[in-house]
Design a protein around this nucleic acid. Sequence first.
RNA 1: GCCGCGGUGGUGGAAUGGUAUACACGUUGGACUUAAAAUCCAAUGGCGCAAGUCUUGUGGGUUCGACUCCCACCCGCGGCACCA
Length: 797
Amino acid sequence: MKKYIPAEIEAKIQGKWVKEELYKTDLTKPKKFYVLAEYAYPSGNLHMGHWFTFAGADIYARFKRLQGFNVFFPNGFDAFGLPAENAAIKNKIHPEDWTLANVEKMKEQFGTMGASFTFDHEVITCLPEYYKWNQWIFLQMLKKDLAYQKKSLSNWCEQCQTVLANEGVEAGACWRCGTEVVQKEVEQWFFKITDYAEKLLWKETPSVDWPQSLRDAQNNWIGKSEGALIKFNDLEVFTTRPDTIFGATFLVLSPEHPKLKDLISKQQEDEVLKYIQIAGTKSELERKENKEKTGVFTGSYVKNPLSEKDIPVWVADYVLTGYGTGAIMAVPAHDERDFEFAKKFGLEIVRVVKTDEDESEKEEKATTGEGIMVNSGQYNGLSSSEAREKITNYLVEHHLGSIKVQYHLHDWSISRQRYWGTPIPIIYCPDCGVVPVPEEDLPVKLPRDVDYTPKGKSPLASNEEWINVKCPKCKGEAKRDADTMDTFVDSSWYFFRYLSPDLENKVFDIDLAKKIMPVNTYFGGAEHNLGHTLYSRFFTKFFKDLGLTDLDEYAQRRVNHGIVLGPDGNKMSKSKGNVVNPDEEVKKYGADAVRIHVAFFMPYEGSSGPWISERIWGPFRFLERVWNLFDKVSDIEPTKQDLIMLNKIVKKTGEDIDGIRFNTAVAALMEWLNYLSHKEKVSQYEYKTLLILLAPFAPHITEELWELLGQEGSIHNQPWPQIEEKYLQDEKITIVVQVDGKVRDNLLIESDLVNSQPDIEKLALNSPRVQKCIDSVTVVKVIYVPGKIINLVTTKN
RNA sequence: GCCGCGGUGGUGGAAUGGUAUACACGUUGGACUUAAAAUCCAAUGGCGCAAGUCUUGUGGGUUCGACUCCCACCCGCGGCACCA
């Protein structure tokens, strides 16, 4: 046998696959299985993260194919976005040219992974064939009142010169460039995702298999809380604790509250206006960092509808404009923030709930738990939950309030003041107002010729020919919307478009989607827990309401893969200089060894671990030994013991790949190789089976060896080996003997003795090592777990 | 602060309540070699010559038996956070 040199075989094998169109998709065949990996942004550089995602998904897809499924494993590109503009400005190349060149470059890089996806259903989101349908979806949203325009304070990144969605703000900074986010008043388009808040909430036992951590994070983000709206004169507040209303000793408005100006007394005017002004100049980050309470009395009072006391109205920036009504009833005895505020400004504190923790702590802090009502008129003596219900009912009956479900989730702002994205299909006419572009005029094509250097205004406005149009209604002079859509719009439905990327008259093929959707398994990163995966769930539910699909969820199972860290254990980053380039790893060790390392070096799902390049010698040596084992293959029959081993490994490998436990699947294969290596000769049957089990992980070497064995066709079209039940039972079984729970001996027994406890007991008691232990004590109890363990429980004489 | 995940050899990591440390990396010794690399064989949690004994973040509990279940705590990672 020649030497194992990956470089010599991998390119050859990859060429063969392409030539034979081994992974070409045929969606008409039965037994579909849709494997999806988050499509990549075409940066021009395939990094370790891409490699990790796609190698993992590919191992799984190849396994499913061997199991006989008609696997659909498409790939494409998330091709709109800011980096194209930045690169274009820097390199003086048009974003379109830069992007499309990168797409080609990355396809080549993807090729060296030896992955089994094809681009024959490819989606490239920057092409009009695709973004036309973003625009169409926008128009459907508009029709259903789910798209609306609002001038509002928005998250603004100075660096990127654009608005960011709430999900795009990380710790007060831009997710893309890390610049501090400021609030800026901008006219924006929004998708009303809040209408779907309830539907987007995960139930305790969901119908699909998505990670707990993701579901919790999304539910948290949606942030449902049930409470009441209560009127104090004509000021409305939201509270989750109407039971504590007798303890509401003042009201607090946010500095931006619309009714604030009407409440300011002459006396307080200067102070309040100054406060509002200062609050307005504080950035979001400053407000959040400085948690010291500040505020001013407005000079007005309102009546507490239940206690009927007049209580003062204050303004303070600890009350947020964007949540509830932007005004609160302050209950200092039972809310920590209100308590802190009342202490600082000497406001009245009235306890209305007596809790367990009360006695020792009553003066020092607020008590937020449930308890028994006091100081609450006719509600005294009730439990706080009873009082909550009764007081709410009272308020509703007397038109003083209403039941309210409040969500933390905000509507999704989709306007971006940038060039490289989907134009928003809206026209502004001086006479007709906001006019949607008629569907038959789609797509609104993105013009090539614009000034896309950032100036704080939308670059599209710089192209006179494009921006000026005739109004579709009155045919008068009008202007287009110059903003483009958030690229998360693109990625919210690309998996539907994969089915029929060339379809011209429909957003996607509805009948085909019935057959192929949902995605069976979706591989991606946990960084999309709150963005992409939430938006795409929203789109799916919207599509359902449009009658395009009957699915509630688009993916049956979601796998959040782990994170590959640099060799120093830190996140890979250019600035830390710890970036590992997968191309170089492939050159050094071969794609197969790198794939096995990906599968083996840590649990694939949910973990994180450092990539230590030298350790790939392990997987490499493993493959080399598989290669060299070829010389031991002979025309012999496997023994029964061989078959027992084989069946055990087939079972383990299959179950582990199915459960995305790639590391233990590889370990099982290594274990088996060790077993086979110790033999003089290895049967064809064992070797062929080993190659098939290994094929999802190391597709090249197994294909080559399959050919060298003189086998017909590709190994990747073989059936996954069937398990023979009769070989799963060993002839001899080891029973562990314990005395008082401590291991003292092993018994090797014939398997037919397994259920005969007296025999095993006798054997155990006969063991010299056991006898030594029970010499001076009495065995009072024997526990026997068939096939596993026998435990002798003793007592001192 | 709240939510989620985790803490096991020198390292990455295995273990349906039933032999803790599979598999791999590393290390050490040996074979081969003029030599080195590569390869192959062996050893490898701690203490002990050994019989043994101790060991899964800490402390309790349940159990014949706990890495696994329960309670309290400590530490790390990720997310959210003045959300009323």
